[in-house]
């Protein structure tokens, strides 16, 4: 478990530093965010023709309302944390790659919902927009990453092996009961019988 956390934090540190590094920002993060704005404009355009995007800005022409997709709203940080959790967990590279690709899709799909919903919430009520933008959607994106990670580790082949990895350094041992159910966090003392 300690190994998991060391790797988890180390990978996050490396990826976050890369994200902030100017060349990576210019070559990867900014075009990606602009692509996200373009995709959001296209989705909104399916039912609202007055929307255009320019760079990282999503603009509603009829009422002059615009939102800018900044760092923290492009889902990159959530992807960094999910990637770190997947890469740090003991699994084959094939399963890690599948997890990374599907995790990207899961986070960015919900992120598109976030952008589109905030775009309309902002036009409707600024206070509600601020509240959902600053607090609620942040939490929902993080939950998305966490639930995806739980589903991913649950679908791994031989999950019992992974379970034993989690148990390896925890305070209590996993004890197999007669029904085969594990009783985590508890230890059974062996009874010695005098003969």
């Amino acid at each position: 478990m300690l190994k998991f956390f060391v790797l988890f934090f180390a990978i996050q540190g490396v990826l976050f530093t890369l994200e902030l590094w100017h060349p990576v920002r210019r070559a990867v993060i900014e075009p990606f965010t602009a692509g996200l704005a373009g995709l959001s404009a296209w989705i909104v355009g399916l039912f609202d023709s007055g929307v255009v995007s320019s760079g990282i800005i999503l603009y509603h022409v009829p009422n002059d309302f615009a939102v800018s997709i900044e760092a923290g709203c492009n889902g990159v940080e959530a992807m960094i944390i999910l990637a770190a959790a997947i890469l740090a967990f003991p699994a084959s590279w094939k399963h890690k790659l599948i997890g990374l690709v599907l995790g990207f899709v899961a986070i960015q799909s919900l992120n598109l919902v976030r952008i589109v919903s905030l775009f309309y919430l902002g036009q409707w009520d600024y206070q509600i927009f601020q509240w959902t933008h600053l607090y609620l959607w942040q939490a929902l994106i993080m939950l998305d990453a966490l639930i995806f990670w739980l589903v991913w580790i649950r679908l791994l082949p031989r999950p019992q092996k992974a379970a034993s990895f989690l148990a390896a350094s925890s305070s209590g041992a996993v004890v197999q009961s007669r029904t085969g159910k594990s009783s985590p966090g508890r230890t059974k003392k062996k009874k010695s019988r005098k003969r």
């Binding site: 580790i153 649950r154 791994l156 379970a163 148990a167 996993v174 159910k181």
Partner: peptide
């Protein structure tokens, strides 16, 4: 998490 994995 162990319970989730054990169920799987």
């Amino acid at each position: 998490i162990r319970d989730v994995l054990s169920e799987g």
